[in-house]
Amino acid sequence: MTATKKTVIGLLVLAVIIALVPLFILQNAEFGGSDDAGSGVVSEITGTEYEPWFTPIFETAINGEIPGEVESLFFCVQTGIGVGIIAFIMGRFVERKKKEDEPNKADGSKRAKK
C-alpha cells in the first residue's frame, strides 16, 4: 500500500470517528433537526414567537409539512446525485491515468534496461 493510500484511508477513518463519537458520548441527546432550531433563538431575542411571513412553497403545495421519511428521500436524492457525478468522473480519471501509465511504464522499463 502506498503512502498516499494510507493517508487517505487514515483521514477517512478520522472523519468517521469525529462524526460518530458524539453519538456515543452524548447518549441521551436528541440530535434533532438542526436548521429549524435557529427560530428558537429568534423567539428568545424578540421575546415573542416569530411568525414566518412566508412558508416553503413545497409545504404550501402539499398543504402541510414534508413528512420526515419523504424529506430523507430528498436528502438521499441530493446525496445520490452528488456521489453519482463524483464517482463517474473519478472513475474516468482513474481509467485514463491507467491507460496513460501503461505506455510510460513500458518506456520506463526499456530505458532502465538501457
Binding site: A19, P22, F31, A37, C76, I81, G82, I85, I86
Partner: peptide
C-alpha cells in the same frame, strides 16, 4: 469535469447531516 465534480461535492456535503458534540446535527 472538475467543475461538475466541485458542484457534486457541494451537493453531497451539504446533504449529510452529521451529529456534533453539542447534541444536535448540522
Amino acid at each position: 469535469t472538475l467543475l461538475a465534480m466541485a458542484g457534486a461535492y457541494v451537493f453531497v456535503l451539504s446533504s449529510l447531516k452529521i451529529p456534533s458534540v453539542t447534541g444536535s446535527c448540522s
